[in-house]
Computed example of a mutant assay.
Amino acid sequence: MNKKYDLIVIGGGALGTFHAYHALQNGYSVALFEKDKEPISATVRNFGQVVPSGMDTKWQEYGRESLVIYDEIQNKFDISVRNNGSVYLASNDEEVQLIEELSVINKNNGYQSHLLTKEECLNDYPGLRSDYVKAGLFFPQEVTVEPRIMINRLREYLITEKGLDFYGNTKILGCNKIGDVVEIQTANHDVFKAGKVIICCGSEFKTLYPELFAGSDLEVTKLQMMQTKPQLGYNLKGSILTGLSIRRYEAFYECPSFAAIKAKENPDSFEKKWGVHILFKQATDGSVIIGDSHEYANAANMDDLGFDLRMDVDEFMINEAKKIIDLPSYEIQNKWFGIYSQCKNKDIFQHTIDDDIHIVTGIGGKGMTGSAGFSKENIKRIFNLS
């Protein structure tokens, strides 16, 4: 209890854990605090698709750095990384035009991608419907992870190999700078000290600084996903992103034709109302994860999103998925919703209090892809490293 750390990180999800990782890599002593036994929020409720290809130029750079970091860790400790690529499947001429334009952008960025013909797509992705796909864009460097495995194995690696001190089931109720030290107080009345504190959890942000939280531009997104029963003898490699993803992901905003194509869409369509785009990823047990939808509320009013799953959204996603890939079975074994926070007007929320308390949250849907690369740069900034 009397130990003073160089850094305390509050929030054990991907963003917080990768901040801890990079601080440890730079030789700092680090403690990581998680309000639950282990992360149960955004990090473990997503697809586990690491897809820099879907991000704008700034975040693609962070994502590409993340790929390097994932590879470095996986070579030392199994955190469930699988290098099996990502593909965007175009279903009409407009989407073909967009993937062709994105391939040029990536060529100029030095990021490897390959345009696929319809025949190549059908050969590479079993069950893909011939009446859906017209062409594809493949990113061979991209990876998938199993989110509920990855974050816990990453933390185990940091504890056993890097000297991380981890405190689970520990709610933080106070964080104050006293002299040149930051003190945090837990719900168990324990006090911990550090030179610097990074808060990477929206819940703790709200508890510790309610007025700042209420005045932020954070909003919360609720996403519905589902998982089939294991598909015996069936292999669907990598991340499968489809036409609605092409029309949604930020990377495509930089395509010359995007604005004109987007303007033609029906603003009252079901997929627009519920923010649906169809993704597939096969888990290691052979099941296929399908999703997802997007429903929004201001962070201060996140309870308005409720805890129910909308059956009409699930049914729409299944019906759309069946138009794309003929899986051996669409029998669903699990359904759930994920929650993540993002900023309305910025790409991430960052605020510094008293020089040494840093709030970093609201990374949105970029967490699994961008956290590792972003955290590397942010640790350098916070500790004034060259």
Rank of each mutant, 00 (worst) to 15 (best):
N2K: 05
V9P: 01
V9M: 07
V9W: 08
G12R: 00
A14W: 08
G16W: 02
G16D: 01
F18N: 10
A20N: 04
Y21P: 03
Q25A: 12
S29P: 01
S29I: 10
V51K: 01
V51D: 09
P52L: 03
P52C: 04
S53P: 05
M55Q: 11
Y62C: 13
G63L: 12
S66Y: 10
L67Q: 01
D71G: 11
Q74P: 05
N75L: 11
G85A: 11
L89V: 06
N92W: 15
E101R: 05
Y111T: 05
L122Y: 15
L128M: 08
L128C: 09
D131I: 07
V133R: 00
V133N: 01
V133F: 14
T144R: 03
P147N: 04
R148E: 11
I149W: 14
M150S: 04
N152H: 08
L154T: 03
L154S: 00
E156G: 01
L158G: 07
L158E: 01
L164A: 06
D165T: 05
Y167A: 10
L173R: 13
C175W: 10
C175V: 05
D180L: 02
E183C: 04
T186F: 12
D190Y: 15
I199L: 12
G202P: 03
F205I: 07
K206D: 00
Y209F: 12
F213L: 03
A214I: 03
E219Q: 05
K222F: 13
T228I: 06
K229W: 13
Q231E: 09
K237T: 02
S239E: 06
S239M: 12
L241W: 10
T242W: 09
S245W: 14
A251I: 08
E254V: 04
P256R: 01
A259F: 12
E265D: 14
E271V: 01
K272C: 13
G275V: 07
A283E: 09
I289C: 04
I289Q: 06
A297T: 01
M311Y: 13
N319G: 09
I324G: 07
I324V: 05
I324T: 00
L327S: 02
L327V: 02
W336K: 02
Q342D: 14
Q342N: 06
K346E: 14
H351A: 05
I357L: 03
I357M: 07
T361S: 06
G362C: 08
G365D: 14
M368N: 02
T369S: 03
S375A: 07
R381F: 15
